[in-house]
């Protein structure tokens, strides 16, 4: 197990308790009582079959307006996360890497990131453009990225791998306290997966206090990003939690066993 060293504070940074949520306007909950605690510096994997609610959990944490929370609570750094707008959540340190990042035509990645950083400053305070440029270059070097990439328009005409790398770059620049990675591995070939995993590992090493919630369908990304804990989510609730061995069991047996449990 990859226990982070030097983490004296053992209280969770993220506490999810009895969380229920549905698609806004729909009659039935997708999340049916999720409980989860993540401590600073920990990496938790949430695995589950399609339709288990794992992506819904990611979106609810980020504050997607298409979802409605019907019960339970989410505390992040002691604050009620559910009371906050998506931009406030981001400013408090939550970052979601999207499964399907959206195109913003005509807006360069550099411009996008500059606006995002500027938005974090107090009224009247101004981001220094030279400092920003320096930060961007430094972050891109850290991730072995070509500086020309920052001049491309956000996700416009990007391959699947480029979209995910763009998410990692944003994470590197915005330096979150909690990174929620929503099926970052889906649709990536093994080379792209390795690059993305390398990015996440580099950032984890650089920011040991950063917690990661890795949401995935497949075990294979866990070969490259070592989790401290693995949770299995089925039917809108976490049905099993444990160490990395849980993922290996899943790899061997599939989700069938859990389906039988929840159906019965």
């Amino acid at each position: 197990m990859n226990q982070p060293e030097g983490q004296m504070d053992d209280s969770p940074i993220l506490s999810i308790s009895g969380l229920t949520a549905r698609v806004a306007g729909e009659p039935i909950d997708i999340l049916k009582g999720v409980d989860l605690a993540v401590r600073p510096g920990e990496t938790h994997a949430i695995m589950g079959p399609n339709g288990s609610g794992k992506s819904t959990l990611a979106k609810v944490l980020a504050g997607h307006p298409g979802y409605e929370v019907t019960g339970g609570s989410v505390a992040f750094r002691g604050q009620d996360l559910l009371e906050m707008e998506p931009d406030e959540r981001a400013q408090t340190g939550v970052f979601m890497a999207f499964q399907y990042p959206v195109e913003i035509p005509g807006v360069s990645i550099a411009n996008f990131l500059r606006t995002a950083l500027q938005a974090r400053l107090a009224d009247g305070e101004e981001l220094d453009l030279f400092d920003f440029q320096e930060l961007l270059v430094e972050r891109m070097e850290l991730l072995d990225m070509d500086p020309a990439f920052a001049e491309r328009h956000v996700n416009e005409g990007f391959s699947g791998g480029e979209k995910k790398r763009n998410e990692i770059l944003q994470m590197a620049v915005l330096k979150p306290t909690l990174a929620v990675m929503d099926e970052t591995d889906s649709g990536l070939d093994i080379d792209a997966l390795k690059i993305v995993a390398h990015g996440v590992n580099t950032l984890k090493k650089e920011m040991p206090g950063m917690s990661v919630l890795l949401i995935t369908h497949y075990q294979r990304i866990l070969d490259h990003i070592a989790p401290d804990a693995v949770h299995v989510m089925v039917g809108g609730a976490i049905v099993q939690s444990g160490g990395p061995e849980v993922a290996l069991e899943l790899e061997a047996q599939g989700y069938e066993e859990y389906r039988a449990v929840t159906a019965g």
């Binding site: 980020a62 504050g63 997607h64 307006p65 707008e85 998506p86 931009d87 959540r89 981001a90 400013q91 970052f95 979601m96 999207f98 990042p101 959206v102 913003i104 035509p105 005509g106 807006v107 411009n111 996008f112 606006t115 995002a116 950083l117 938005a119 974090r120 328009h153 956000v154 944003q170 915005l174």
Partner: peptide
């Protein structure tokens, strides 16, 4: 939502989309 999840408020997000357009 994408832009707001990066910390921009609604007006900033809208302005950035329009500027890109």
């Amino acid at each position: 939502f994408y832009l707001m999840s990066r910390g921009m408020d609604e007006a900033e997000a809208m302005a950035l989309i329009v500027r890109g357009f």
